[in-house]
Amino acid sequence: MAFQVSKSNDVMVIDVEGQLIVGNRQELKQKVLYELEKGERKFVVNFSETGYIDSSGLGVLVSLSKKIREQEGELRLASLNEDLRTLFELTKLDTLFTIADTREQALEGL
């Protein structure tokens, strides 16, 4: 599992390959906070290659979203499969995030 960070215009895109769970959530947090400290303000986390997320993974997304908003930035999520979308709906976190069907849609207007 890994997090691939790339830049599309002025948006940082983080592709989550594998799982986002308790064992690797700190890695994602550190990568995003590093870019935030460098001055980046727009982020998309793309889940098209993601198997599953646990509560720790959901928690780190909530935490990052707050930190990015505090810096007047925005975090969007993209490409949740049916299972991942179910987890966001169960926890009502779908009301907290902008969730796009695709990476491209997430980038639009950001």
Binding site: D54, S55, L58, G59, K66, L90, T91, K92, L93, L96
Partner: peptide
């Protein structure tokens, strides 16, 4: 309950809820 409005923006507290729900 992590789905209550006051708890929604907390980073933790969803593990037991997910276990019970799933």
């Amino acid at each position: 309950d992590p789905t209550l409005p006051d708890n929604l923006t907390k980073s933790g507290g969803r593990g037991i809820f997910l276990m019970k729900t799933l």
